[in-house]
């Protein structure tokens, strides 16, 4: 499910949460919570703005499979 965060690379800066236009990502103390993956628009803002390259975008099977 989009986006997927690599906890080893993430520095907990919170930019992906702040910049998501769809309110999908929530920054918690212990890490990034991609709370509403079904509401992702795949705009790529989180990935573009992540300072550490911790965000990968994955597409659900329905998008790739049809």
């Amino acid at each position: 499910m989009p986006p997927v965060i690599d906890p080893d690379k993430c520095n907990l800066c919170g930019v992906c949460d702040e910049h998501c236009p769809l309110d999908v990502i929530y920054m918690e103390n212990e890490g990034v919570d991609v709370r509403y993956p079904l509401e992702c628009w795949h705009c790529g803002a989180c990935r573009q703005d992540c300072p550490t390259g911790a965000v990968d975008i994955e597409f659900p099977l329905i998008m790739l499979g049809v």
Binding site: H19, C20, P21, W41, C43, Q48
Partner: peptide, 13 residues
């Protein structure tokens, strides 16, 4: 509604 840095139609480019 979101955050002005990345919102709306051109959020991603």
């Amino acid at each position: 509604k979101a955050n002005i840095e990345r919102s709306g139609a051109i959020a991603g480019g």
